[in-house]
């Protein structure tokens, strides 16, 4: 991958002048992800949400390349139509066969974990050549901080209120990256805006692959997380360092941790955030303990997938099976296969 100086020479993909809050993690994510396209033209799409409304207030678009939005739950489906058009028009000879475009769809956690999950699943299964990016800020921020399937356990939101009877969100977050990985797509990864090198490397890898790829990017929302507006990157850093947000990738079903150095207690991630303030009142230690237990359990799960991948590769080798079959790749890209009816 190019170094930061070389990256700085790439075309700008997201222009300033959008209306995202100052210090928003989502646009940091978009900028870093799109560096992965290099100099190839990119067509982007987005689910309804902060990113979409704030970057496309008519007549102001921040998207330097083509952009499309249709509805909240359909970023993946809409982009699959764009990509299908690219194939269909090439086959019809209406656009040059060698034209290259990268297709990238963005959705927040609400638009991805929850309402857009079906469309995402369908698009992944159909093998469209596109990258789907979830910018995960852990709640419906556009409508004013409501809980989503990505909201952490015990977090305050306006629909997981903290009161005498209920201590914030009662449910653990959905493991979206694993769900996506279960589609056995060529590449899925988890990244964070705080680890730009890791993120841009993953985005580059994802966009170079012919077929559906996925990135789940931790992109803090200072307003929703109740942290100062200059803290998006710092708090994401703590999310990674406490293993709240492990950085890993799943390439052809082989799981690999891409950052495995520090391990801080979960309090370091929770304490700076106003949405977890209630956890630090005397008597609520058990909630933090439960949070920590869940983080550790999930990290152990990821580690087990990494270990398991080694066994998997070994078994494939023993059986003489390839990790990826050429026919499947060709089929995916729409190439004609030798076939007798």
């Amino acid at each position: 991958m190019a170094n930061i100086k070389q990256l700085s020479e790439l075309p700008q993909r997201l222009s300033p002048g959008h209306s995202m809050c100052g210090g928003c993690g989502a646009t940091i994510a978009v900028r870093q992800v799109l560096m992965g396209a290099g100099k190839t033209p990119v067509v982007c799409g987005a689910a309804t949400g902060c990113l979409e409304v704030s970057t496309t207030t008519f007549p102001f678009t921040s998207w330097e390349g083509g952009f499309i939005h249709s509805t909240f739950e359909s970023a993946a489906a809409t982009m699959s139509g764009v990509e299908a058009a690219f194939r269909g028009l090439k086959r019809a000879g209406k656009i040059p066969a060698d034209k290259k475009i990268k297709f990238v769809a963005f959705g927040g956690d609400g638009g991805t974990y929850d309402i857009g999950l079906q469309a995402l699943s369908g698009a992944l299964e159909r093998g469209h050549d596109f990258l789907y990016v979830c910018y995960d800020n852990g709640a419906y921020m556009n409508t004013g901080i409501q809980r989503s399937g990505a909201t952490p356990y015990s977090a305050w939101t306006t629909t997981s209120e903290v009161g005498n009877a209920v201590p914030g969100k009662r449910h653990f977050e959905k493991d979206l990256t694993s769900i996506v990985a279960a589609h056995h797509i060529p590449y899925a990864a988890q990244a964070s805006i705080s680890n730009w090198n890791d993120l841009v490397t993953k985005a580059t890898k994802a966009m170079d692959i012919d077929g559906p790829t996925f990135l789940n990017v931790l992109a803090p929302c200072p307003r929703g997380w109740r942290v100062p507006f200059d803290q998006a990157v710092e708090i994401a850093k703590l999310g990674v360092a406490t293993n709240y947000w492990p950085l890993y990738e799943v390439e052809n079903d082989v799981w690999k941790l891409t950052e495995n150095r520090r391990k801080l207690p979960i309090e370091d991630f929770l304490q700076p955030q106003g949405r977890f303030r209630h956890l630090f009142k005397p008597g609520n230690e058990h909630l933090i303990k439960e949070f920590q237990t869940n983080v550790d359990r999930h990290y152990a799960y990821i580690q087990a997938r990494v270990e398991g991948s080694k066994v998997y590769q070994q078994k494939l080798e023993e059986a003489g099976l390839p990790l990826v079959s050429d026919d499947a790749l060709a089929m995916q890209s729409g190439s004609k296969l030798p076939f007798q009816q």
Binding site: V43, G45, I68, S70, T71, S74, A77, T78, M79, S80, G81, V82, E83, A84, A85, F86, G88, L89, A119
Partner: peptide, 11 residues
């Protein structure tokens, strides 16, 4: 949704 994407793509 896919029809919208495809049509916007000129198909």
């Amino acid at each position: 949704a896919a029809a919208i994407g495809a049509s916007a793509a000129g198909a």
